[in-house]
Amino acid sequence: MLRVIDLACARGGVPVLESVAFTLAPGEALVLRGPNGIGKTTLLRTVAGLQVPLAGRIEAKPDRIAYAAHADGIKATLSVAENLGFWAAVHGQSDIGPAVAAMNLSALVNRPAANLSAGQKRRLGLARLMVTGRPVWVLDEPTVSLDLASVALFGRAVAAHLAGGGSALIATHIDLGIEARVLDLTPFRARPPGQGGIATAFDGGFGDDAAGAFL
């Protein structure tokens, strides 16, 4: 469903990860871990097609990936139903009922999104994944600002998605209560160009002694 081969990616022109490789089969979830700044978000953005890899390949049909990041694309002046309905229409779906029910938003459907709490907005953002009808969920810290009950709710939604033959690639620090393989990104940290890492356009310009260049 998703195969990543020898992938290297950069943020702001600086390589952050290299030689990342994993596969994701239907019904499978992969949790990405690693310290802040290791490149989890960069990897997810690359997989979602928002930026180009420095090296390596991503084998997945681009029309199978649903991406959810820190910002949920929620319009404050539209109601919950209007927000969800828009994304459903973009993806050629029409029924937002199951997504509303799964994320416990039934009582809020007619409320303008401006009046939602941070956790409720997050639930709305996650409900969007369900109306895309896409099998591969690429999630960046999906549980930010969710309370424990909502995390459990979301865990069940991911489990149902996996049981339905979908798969998920999740960067998170907490336990979602689902069966998932864990990939620690620490060993994939990009090496400096001098030690065999990938040279970028930047490196030629400043020479190898980046530390001394401005002294």
């Binding site: 097609g49 694309g73 973009v90």
Partner: peptide, 16 residues
Amino acid sequence: LDFEDGTLEILIPSPL
């Protein structure tokens, strides 16, 4: 506005 609230990032991988 669509850039700030993340809509653009979601639109790019969308079928549109």
